[in-house]
Write a protein that binds this DNA or RNA. Structure first.
Lengths: 135, 135
DNA sequence: CAGTATCCCTTGGGATACTG
DNA sequence: CAGTATCCCAAGGGATACTG
């Protein structure tokens, strides 16, 4: 804990911080999973079921090979995707969501809908903010 | 578009990428909002209603003043939080969620629940991954 | 095809010090 | 109290080249 906001020890009437209720592992998981590329890949695999490496990249669109590899590895590590290698030449590798990957995709669904629904309002808020600062 | 996975032009039978259906602005919004600190602050303000600058930091726990300021500014810019300055000495600044901030918090709720529910399974997947690579 | 390795620049993010 | 400003290091992330 190196936070500049740690509660003082004798202030025991203070409400607890998020730490105890949320837990370090959950925070770590959120840190890994609340990521743009993860969300995009989750979405792509959720829509298409099974995709090859290159197909995932094509579906996501604007992603470099490096980030695609890295994000897929992390997702595999966390058990969100299954990776199936067909030992043929040229190589053929399939990716698909696991059960918990699908569940996470479902959980993020609400966030996608939120972003879609309020994009105009967010744009408005940004312009209002700029105008406020300028004026 | 600098992706290495762009569909070739004459392959018009290919399924469309996520780009047209998701949209650049929505992707940008997700990029801003799918962030560990944003999620934690959203959660803190959702639980407590209104908090002062320092209180937000204390509730989040392990956040530096720099990231707290920066994240709160971005959230204000996007219209997720309202910032109310009381012109007194010493300064007093209140933060609270806007309507769309609360909606986003709700949308993220499913992700928190997912992380909470599957943390053991994720830990298991990680250990299995390590063992697979080691063995 | 499905990567890995390298280079190199940008951003994230903590620590510390200072200010109205 | 609620910030800004500065320094500095680590991680993100694109481009290119190479490999089984």
């Amino acid at each position: 804990m190196t936070s500049q906001f740690a509660a003082t020890q004798n202030d025991d009437h203070l409400e607890k911080t998020l730490d105890p209720v949320i837990g370090a592992l959950v925070r770590d998981i959120i840190g890994k999973v609340a990521d743009k590329w993860t969300m995009l890949i989750l979405e792509a695999l959720d829509q298409h079921g099974t995709l090859r490496f290159t197909e995932v990249g094509r579906q996501v669109g604007d992603i470099s090979q490096k980030m695609l590899t890295k994000t897929l590895r992390q997702m595999e590590y966390d058990g969100l995707v299954e990776r199936e290698v067909h030992p043929v030449i040229p190589p053929h590798v399939d990716y698909r969501l696991t059960e918990i990957g699908r569940e996470l995709s479902d959980a993020f669904c609400g966030v996608w809908i939120w972003a879609e629904r309020y994009q105009a309002q967010i744009e408005g808020a940004r312009q209002a903010f700029d105008k406020r600062k300028a004026g």
